[in-house]
Simulated assay, not measured.
Amino acid sequence: MWKPSLRRAGLPLGLRFHDLRHSYATWLVSDGVPINDVAKVMGHEQTSTTLDRYTHSTRDRDRRVLASFAAFSLPLPEQ
């Protein structure tokens, strides 16, 4: 059932069902879900397991980091 589904979706046949867990964790973290909540949903006792083994960089990581930095403003010193 898995391989025919991959073919129909045009996905690589080497994709494992377990890879969906990694994608799910990455999507949740990228969407701003707190890591404690993601770890709980994934069934991990340690948040480090979720971060170190299950989440991966996304293509838009650099853009998101720069946008966050640009949105951060410091008050101008009074003169």
Rank of each mutant, 00 (worst) to 15 (best):
S48N: 12
W27D: 07
H22A: 07
Q46C: 02
F72A: 14
T26V: 07
T26P: 10
H44E: 07
E45F: 10
P77L: 15
R8S: 03
D60E: 14
R53E: 09
D52E: 15
R16N: 05
K40G: 00
T49L: 04
T58E: 14
F72V: 11
R16D: 08
P4F: 14
R53S: 04
L28R: 04
S57Q: 09
P4Q: 13
L76Y: 10
T49V: 10
E45C: 02
Y24T: 03
D31A: 13
R16H: 09
Q79C: 06
R61D: 14
T26K: 04
A25P: 06
R8V: 06
R59Q: 09
D37I: 01
R8M: 11
N36S: 06
R53P: 04
R63S: 13
G32M: 11
T26S: 12
G43I: 11
H56Y: 08
I35F: 01
S73C: 15
Y54A: 02
L15H: 03
L76D: 12
L51W: 02
P4L: 14
L51S: 04
F69H: 11
Y54F: 06
A67F: 13
F17A: 03
S68G: 15
V33T: 05
G43E: 10
F69W: 13
L15F: 10
A67Q: 15
S48F: 14
R59S: 11
A70V: 06
P34R: 06
L76C: 08
A25W: 01
L74M: 12
G32V: 07
R8W: 09
M1A: 11
H44N: 05
N36M: 12
D52V: 07
D52L: 13
H56L: 05
G43W: 13
F69M: 15
L74C: 07
P75F: 14
A9T: 02
R61N: 10
L76H: 09
I35Y: 01
K3I: 11
V41D: 05
V38H: 02
N36R: 11
Y24F: 11
L6K: 06
F72L: 15
L15G: 00
E78H: 06
E78I: 08
D62T: 09
F69Q: 11
S57M: 11
L74Y: 09
G43R: 13
G43S: 10
H44Q: 06
W2P: 00
D62G: 07
D62C: 07
A67E: 15
A67H: 12
K3P: 00
T50V: 04
R16P: 04
P77V: 14
D31G: 11
L13I: 05
L6T: 02
S48Q: 14
V65F: 13
S48K: 13
D31T: 06
L76W: 13
Q46R: 08
R53D: 07
S57L: 13
R59H: 08
P75M: 13
D37W: 00
H22T: 04
F69N: 09
L6H: 03
A39P: 00
T50P: 02
G10Y: 13
T50N: 01
V65L: 15
H44P: 02
L15Q: 01
L51N: 05
L66D: 12
E45G: 01
S68L: 15
M42R: 00
R64H: 12
V41A: 09
T55R: 01
S23V: 06
L20Q: 02
R21S: 00
T49Q: 01
S5G: 09
T50M: 07
R63D: 14
